[in-house]
Design a protein around this nucleic acid. Structure first.
Length: 577
RNA sequence: GCGCCCGUAGCUCAGUUGGAUAGAGCAACUGCCUUCUAAGCAGUGGGUCGCGCGUUCGAUUCGCGCCGGGCGCGCCA
């Protein structure tokens, strides 16, 4: 992390010039254009501005105190007051050698590791997982992997929708119209059919609705038969969840669904009422935010007028449980919720209530929200028939489409291998298509784009990786992994690749900071681009001596960074494609 | 009505504390395979960053006001 050293030195120099200045925001970033140098800071300009100083003069004063001759050429003041840093070849070579020799792969673990609970995916019992779950699942998993890599203790928890009014209808359907044959063949489809059937009956026949209510009450009051049915529905659903998660390579440490918190709901509301946070309102219990301008018109209900609890109550109980250390015993420094944009208000309310409830809590609460998935017509993503798209069907189609392309490009590979490649490429494309975009934008789902061989896509990155591996398959027996090769960077393509490798940690930190994996994707795409240009212009296996050793080592580092980066995104690499 | 988000090339999207000529991919056009995978590389054309005002040495980025779109706003989650 050379730029970290430069940053530290820069901050020290600034402190010598302006002893009272806050130097924490004075950062060093890669230059937007290599002609300026490798790294730059523009922070001195805003600092000078705030003090009505001459920015170029301040930059010059700081430059004069900068003690970085070990790493950089003499620093120049540029433009309105930029400081541009250009690495000395020896410093670049040293950084590369350290990584090649088994040191950190151009990133550092966090200096302040913390326990982080991540709540994501949250599918519903008795319903198929659909595209609506994919963003939460993929994004949450990527964030979990990212924070783990950076040294945090990550606790993933799947808050499954296993409780609620829908079970009244499901039990009515189960008792009066279950098709055992269909249940065996496709339990999720059968439960979905039952629910839809009873739901439509309820609309025309109030007696059915009443029966559903009664079944729900029986379930809630512990009726043995209804509990049994409920548990069976959960079990059937969980095997579906497991199928999807194992295909996607997603793992959870805990799966504490909504029902887990049932016994705690009553005391949550009582406690809130006792503290004067919740108050009666129109028969319900509500929390008002009279002193919060954004929320003053949006009270939150924590108990319904019929005495039942709703999701705000469950979420409060869950939040309290997690803050107290959950069943894992560690109080988290941070809790992250990965859900869609429409829930912003809900989490604003949830966090506001919790802060008032437990003002002493030091935990960071984050709602990481994301936009919708749209079809290519710009409307919500549906099948041609207008149904929601099942996640399993989507994954099947991704693999099928990828297999077709692989077979077209490489018909001579054995089928088993083609299928393995198709799996990595197909699932990788789905994940990457989603993760490479700013999560807050709505995402237009397009097979052609995500499976495209060009542009910022999984296949392009996987291809870059496969090309590197191909070099080592064809030759390079003389390359010693972890060996102390001297790096002699000569060609401009070598230099651009090498300098980009150094910035991997910056991409990881940036992605973690704002919960934006697309920063990492952009970095990896650029890395693959630098590698492609290097590959085009710098023959590896035909080179000799130091040039060959340097190029082999650059290839190896590129492959390792690509592999590590893709792993963070939950994407498997392939040796050939 | 109130709140949140969005509006960047024909299309789909990036754009990291405000920073140097606003970037990709697709689509269009032009080159490069007797050379490690051409699933690649190089190049050309294409922009009043929705509109206006303001703050600033500097605004796609910050503030205010419009226009257009999406979503949310007490007993679903």
């Amino acid at each position: 992390m050379l730029h970290k050293i430069l940053e530290q030195k820069l901050q020290q120099a600034l402190a010598a010039v302006l002893p009272e200045a806050d130097t924490s925001g004075v950062l060093v970033r890669p230059c937007p254009d290599p002609k300026f140098g490798d790294y730059q800071t523009n922070a001195l300009m805003s600092l000078a501005k705030a003090r009505k100083m001459n920015p170029r003069q301040l930059a010059a004063d700081v430059a004069a105190r900068l003690d970085i001759a070990a790493w950089c050429e003499p620093v120049q003041v540029a433009g309105a007051g930029f400081l541009n840093f250009r690495l000395k070849p020896a410093a670049l070579a040293t950084a590369l050698r350290q990584a090649a020799g088994g040191g950190d792969l151009f990133f550092q673990k966090s200096a302040n590791p913390r326990a982080v609970v991540i709540d994501f995916s949250s599918p519903n019992v008795a319903k198929p997982m659909h595209v609506g779950h994919i963003r939460s699942t993929i994004l949450g998993d990527a964030l979990a992997r990212l924070l783990r890599l950076l040294g945090h203790r990550v606790i993933t928890d799947n808050h499954i929708g296993d409780w609620g009014t829908q079970f009244g209808k499901l039990i009515v359907g189960w008792k009066s119209g279950l098709d055992a044959e269909k249940l065996r063949a496709d339990p999720i489809a059968e439960m979905e059919r039952l629910y839809k059937w009873v739901n439509s009956e309820c609309e025309t026949d109030p007696r059915v609705l009443e029966r559903a209510r009664q079944e729900l009450v029986k379930l809630q009051s512990g009726d043995a038969e209804n509990l049994r049915l409920w548990r069976e529905m959960i079990a059937l659903s969980e095997s579906q969840f497991e199928r999807v998660y194992s295909r996607l390579g997603v793992k959870f440490d805990y799966r504490l669904g909504e029902s887990y918190y049932n016994p705690r709901l009553k005391s949550v509301v009582e406690d809130l009422a006792a503290r004067g946070i919740a108050e009666p309102s129109e028969g319900a219990m509500a929390v008002f935010f009279r002193d919060v301008p954004e929320l003053k018109d949006h009270p939150a209900l924590v108990r319904k007028s019929d005495g039942g609890f709703n999701y705000a109550t469950t979420d409060l109980a869950t939040l309290l449980f997690r803050w107290e250390g959950g069943s894992w015993g560690a109080a988290p420094g941070e809790i992250i919720y990965v859900t869609g944009a429409p829930q912003q208000l809900h989490f604003q309310q949830l966090f506001a209530i919790f802060r008032r409830w437990h003002p002493e809590a030091r935990v960071k609460l984050a709602h990481v929200w994301f936009g919708s998935i749209l079809g290519e017509d710009g409307k919500p993503f549906k099948t041609r028939a207008g149904d929601t798209v099942r996640l399993e069907d989507l994954l099947d189609e991704a693999e099928e489409r990828a297999l077709k392309v692989v077979t077209e490009k490489n018909p001579e590979l054995p089928e088993g291998q083609r299928r393995d490649i198709a799996r990595a490429v197909g699932l990788g494309s789905i994940k990457y298509g989603d993760l490479s975009q700013n999560r807050q934008s709505d995402y237009v789902f397009s097979w052609d784009r995500m499976l495209s061989l060009q542009g910022n896509t999984a296949p392009y990155l996987l291809y870059a990786y496969a090309r590197v591996r191909s070099i080592f398959r064809k030759g390079g027996e003389d390359f010693q992994a972890g060996g102390g090769a001297e790096f002699v960077i000569a060609a401009p393509e070598e230099a651009a690749l090498a300098r980009h490798l150094l910035n991997f940690g910056l991409a990881l930190d940036g992605a973690a900071e704002d919960y934006r994996p697309n920063f990492l994707c952009a970095y990896l795409y650029e890395l693959a681009g630098h590698f492609a240009r290097f590959y085009e212009n710098c023959p590896v296996l035909k080179a000799e001596g130091a040039e060959r050793a340097t190029r082999l080592a650059l290839c190896d580092l590129t492959a390792r960074v690509l592999q590590q980066g893709l792993e963070v995104l939950g994407i498997d690499t392939v040796e050939q494609m």
